[in-house]
Design a binder for these strands. Structure first.
Ligand SMILES: [Mn+2]
Ligand SMILES: [Mn+2]
Ligand SMILES: [Zn+2]
Ligand SMILES: [Zn+2]
Lengths: 132, 132
DNA sequence: CACCTTTTTAGAATCATTATAAAGTACATT
DNA sequence: AATGTACTTTATAATGATTCTAAAAAGGTG
């Protein structure tokens, strides 16, 4: 498995559960946006695999802490995660409740002119909401 | 009271509770960013007034539906509201956990080049995270 | 006032998330 | 390979923000 190395290098033991979750999250070249519920449902329904919900939470948070996942700010009662951990922009389709990555070139450079004393810019992200 | 009219015109009865909340939220020219908890605490501690938490929730949601408040997407366990209901950009100070409005001129025009078939752009908002 | 509708309220219910602690597993060492 | 230890999984309970409920209170109209 290609994820065993990755986990070991992060100081995470490559357990069956973590490897399964890696496959779901990272075995695709395209960005994956999900909630814990989405992920748990995929594991249960599509993979017919049983991983306890606590482990799904634990694993997602461990991966987030290691920098393999990031949270996306959205108005939802559930937290959204993203396998694309770089600073990047999104379309949010309000009808489908789906996130879509934008390339920097889809948005163009953003130049923040205002400065706050003693504060540094850590990230700049655009959220474009879509309607029908 | 200047808010009695505003509420009546929106089809909302101007109750003591709603008028008090209007004063907290709208009696200032500058934008107010808050959570339900922030608002309830101000009413209780600073105004020595007792409004039930259910009423604070009801009122904030009523005002949101009438277009006097909007939600701000942030990664928090609590929902953030904003008295500035126009499309606008924010600094988010990660240390202070405070939102700051940006003027359009602080950011400059944003031109989204990508289009999705059958979808219209409803809003474009930038979130700039700040560090120390 | 009498009437009807809307609103407030305390408390219960819901639901995502986090905490707990016991059983299981990875893995370094012998 | 067996042992020891730290890490991980798991079922379950706890937490906490938000929503629901239904009864009492208040607004508005004639
Ligand atoms: Mn979802
Ligand atoms: Mn707050
Ligand atoms: Zn993304
Ligand atoms: Zn704002």
């Amino acid at each position: 498995m290609k994820y065993i190395e990755k986990l070991r290098n992060s100081g995470l033991r490559p357990t069956k559960q973590r490897l399964k979750i890696c496959e779901v999250l990272f075995n695709t070249e395209k960005t994956f946006h999900f909630t814990i519920n989405d992920l748990a449902k995929i594991i249960k329904d599509k993979l017919n695999n049983k991983i306890s919900l606590a482990t799904v939470y634990n694993t997602v948070h461990a991966f987030e802490k290691k920098g393999y996942l990031k949270q996306i700010p959205l108005n939802s009662n559930q937290t959204y995660f993203d396998t694309n951990t770089s600073d990047h922009h999104h379309f949010y389709d309000l009808t489908e409740e789906k996130l879509i990555d934008l390339k920097d070139s889809d948005v163009g450079p953003i130049n923040i002119k205002k400065k706050i004393n003693g504060k540094k810019i850590k990230s700049i992200e655009v959220l474009v909401k879509l309607d029908n």
